[in-house]
Computed example of a mutant assay.
Amino acid sequence: MTLTPLPRVMIEPLARAALLEDLGRAGDITADAIVPADAKATMVLATRQAGVVAGLDVAALSFELIDPRTEVAVIHSDGTGVSPGDVIATVRGPARALLTAERTALNLLCHLSGIATQTAAVVDAVRDHKAKIVCTRKTTPGLRALEKYAVRAGGGANHRFGLDDAVLIKDNHIAIAGDIRTAIERARAAAGHMVKIEVEVDTITQLEVALAASVDAVLLDNMSLEQLTQAVAMVGGRAITEASGRVTAETAPAIAATGVDLISVGWITHSAPILDIGLDIAP
């Protein structure tokens, strides 16, 4: 799968907001006091542990927004696996700018690389099956585009990006509508012809009703392996099958073996540990 970089117009507002949060009302008073204004530096972004890189563009932009004279030379691009000690990029430019942007660049790079790393682990766990690993809307407010990009960098795929690009009927929608069929009928009457409809079900009985209404996809929520196997057989290719609930790299292979098309994992965006990356003075 080709990893397409996010356009600058999408990532620049996020980098600017993060830098402004750090600069506060007076800028970097530490670097400004200690580092001469004309000092230059060459530094390296180096990994402390194995993982998958993601977020180099937004990290590089963080340096550039502080001072456009900075230059970032990428050695290991996004989506690349790295080992401890690998230099993933070299950063050159005014020393003050490098130090001022350091934390913002690392916050974003480490976080996104952590997501890519954890995604890659789950993707690798199901490599012998057809199931794709997809993320959810359980993302950090303001960072969804970056976090979903990081999932792609790790070899995963994206579920819907927001409330407006697909219909996902969940338990609370059904409870308020009164029943699954009513919820589906209302959604179909309101949605455009390009909008797909997915229904969350947690029992085989609910699945039967959803299939009778010809939905596009079914979210099989917290089902046992036996139920998932039965559900996939019942669907018989008439809808996309998606499994969710309690998914880890350890449990994913058995879930994938049931024959589901997708496995959605919320924690790879909302709880993935960072990949430890540092910014060091070049030798």
Rank of each mutant, 00 (worst) to 15 (best):
N222F: 09
D202L: 00
I240D: 01
A191N: 02
M234L: 15
K138V: 08
L211C: 05
A249L: 06
A239G: 08
A254K: 14
N222V: 02
V232E: 07
H159Q: 14
P273E: 06
T241Q: 05
I277T: 03
A254I: 01
K170R: 14
G266S: 03
A252T: 09
Q206M: 06
A217I: 00
S214Y: 05
H159W: 14
D164P: 00
I204F: 08
A145P: 08
D216A: 00
G259R: 08
E226F: 01
D216Q: 02
L168R: 06
T241R: 08
G278P: 00
A239V: 05
K138C: 11
V201Y: 08
V201S: 03
K148T: 09
S214R: 13
V247P: 02
D221P: 06
A249F: 06
E208I: 03
G178R: 12
S264N: 01
G266D: 02
T136S: 13
A212E: 14
Q206H: 06
A145V: 15
P253W: 09
G178C: 11
V199G: 01
E185D: 12
L219I: 01
T203M: 07
E185S: 11
V232T: 00
E185T: 13
F161Y: 15
G142V: 03
W267G: 02
G178H: 13
D179M: 07
D216R: 02
A213R: 09
V151R: 14
T258F: 10
